[in-house]
Design a protein around this nucleic acid. Structure first.
Lengths: 198, 198, 198, 198
DNA sequence: CATGAATGAGAGTTCATTCAT
DNA sequence: GATGAATGAACTCTCATTCAT
């Protein structure tokens, strides 16, 4: 009772991207499997050949986003640049990630909440989130230890930094006044200024 | 065929609070009218005597949140304290609002997105958001004009400040290491340090 | 977005009867909630005001059937008629039940299998089934003890009796050659003859 | 894009057995083509190289069951054993069939109902069922004619016999108290006792 | 004002079936 | 022959909303 010329095989990654886009625009609950399927020229039913459920699709989106930013951040943290440069690089990477993979970023930042109730599902995501936070902390602590930054509450500082960076996903417009790089640097400057010893 | 002791008339405000709570925990789309009704010991049908739709309920929640924080911020901005004190007071008010009216705050920050598509509905909310941002800007510009703060990109600074403050709603725990006041001051200090002239 | 003149309230029992009918004709899995709803002039969604799931509907059907026949059998077993009369009365009650509540009977006999996998659901049904079998056994054992029946394997005898009676639900036609009563008596005679001492 | 060691060609009969097993455990509607395919290490799509539809698969299962038991019964009926021996042999063959080909038997007894609506499909099955019943009748009528059995309603008697035998499929357990043979003989004895002239 | 039954429009998911490879 | 991707129809269940009582 069905079949199709199958223009070409649809790959997992494409579907994840499509899902992120729809999750971004309609929210996880507001997005329908049909919406997502249509984005990759499939029907809702066909999606289930690739992902066993809508939830699994969200998990894949979150994982893609977290994996990407953790990798980028890790590379920076492990480099031997001075702490201030690392912090600036982190801001650039974060914002670049948010803008380049805008849909995924917004899904990670805003739609992860839909998953945080389910313990089994929550755990891996929280682990990634903590890993990322630890990397940020590490840079600040390094800087303080090296005497480059003033001593302050690292926990709060990092969370504030995080909040400021993530918030970019809310207000960024492609046709805005500043470029991605300028935004990143301006935010980095703000936080670096706060870290500077008097 | 139905009656009830009707413990007491349920007021609008109670319902708004209940709605905020449910929106917080389940998200706007995940929340059902039944969930909200049950929180105030009503049935879903009865809710419609107070609010014409679920959307209106969200609008009311957002409005309550925005009105409260705008009023608080306005009072601070209009005072004649020095800019640095105003900024600290704003941070305290913002975080206090987020914590005291946690459900509402999270709804405003995270669930407003569910409404942003509908133009007719979006407009009033966006107006309030802009009003609030303008107030924040005003304080920073005042400080710069007065020579108390260094000149920087006010737009980005305010958005970063906003992001850092709003993000508190994500990570704040009642049993956390720091008090509400300490958190606010630590964040304010960070941003004030960034504003300080060298 | 909906409502109805509500011709009259639909009662639980009506729905159970309707469900039994549809289960009989289409089988449990083949029956749709729409089918059942239509039988009582409702929509599928409305059914959920009365029963939380299709499974619960099947449970209710099975329970109705088992409760009825157990009650009828219990009354007979507890009477002080001679064992042979009890056996005949049991056959009559069984077959009368099968024919009067044909849909329910067929559902109990044939569709209970759909439930037997789920342990939590299976247990109550199995308990009822065992209760009924015990009642049948009791009559035969009584007869043997009283010397009215010859000694034989009661377990097998009762199961054979059961099978013969239940099977009536498969072949009975309203316009058949024999009446309900004649069928019951003929089967009872067969089994009584088998019980008679030589 | 796909290949497989193809352990060996899968034969029709294997698939029929697999289908019977799955039909037994999940019912006709509850069984999926995937379930059946997996049982013979195939995928659902491959099944269609052997059978044109799920329905045909059920038909094949029913036919296999009916053909087997009719053949076995026919051999017994055509022998020149005395009627009582034939009846006992029939019971043994019936129960042996039910136990040896348990899945098929249960499918025939319980799942044939799923097909009885479709006239084109129903006819052949009903024909076989009638053939079998006629064979049973024949034995009883022979016995009555020969004066070995008392005269009774042959139609009802045969149906009761059938029901008792088929019902074994519901309660038989491999680890039960009695062997297959003992069960068959006990049931046969019951019905033979009922046939005995006083 | 409150209730609860009812609706109808989906939503996620399943599955028999088809077909290019 | 076998595979797996794809389809589309169907199904169970949910829910915002309405309204008679």
């Amino acid at each position: 009772m069905a079949r199709k010329p199958a223009e070409q095989t649809v790959h997992r990654e494409e579907i994840v991207r499509a899902a992120a886009e729809v999750f971004h625009h309609k929210g996880y609950r507001g997005a329908t499997m049909s919406d997502i399927a249509a984005t990759v020229n499939l029907t809702a039913g066909s999606l289930y050949h690739h992902f066993p459920s809508k939830e699994e699709l969200l998990i894949a989106v979150l994982d893609a986003g977290m994996t990407q930013i953790i990798a980028a951040t890790q590379a920076i943290v492990q480099s031997d640049a001075p702490p201030a440069d690392k912090l600036r690089a982190i801001a650039r990477a974060h914002i670049s990630g948010i803008i380049t993979h805008h849909h995924i970023a917004v899904a990670v930042i805003f739609e992860s909440r839909a998953l945080l109730e389910k313990p089994g599902v929550r755990a891996p995501y929280v682990r990634q989130r903590d890993t990322l936070e630890r990397l940020y902390r590490q840079v600040v602590e390094e800087g303080i230890a090296a005497g480059a930054f003033r001593a302050l509450d690292v926990g709060i500082f990092v969370k504030a930094f995080f909040g400021a960076l993530n918030w970019v996903s809310v207000w960024y417009r492609e046709d805005g006044r500043l470029s991605e790089r300028e935004i990143a640097d301006e935010i980095a400057n703000t936080f670096l200024a706060a870290l500077t010893k008097v």
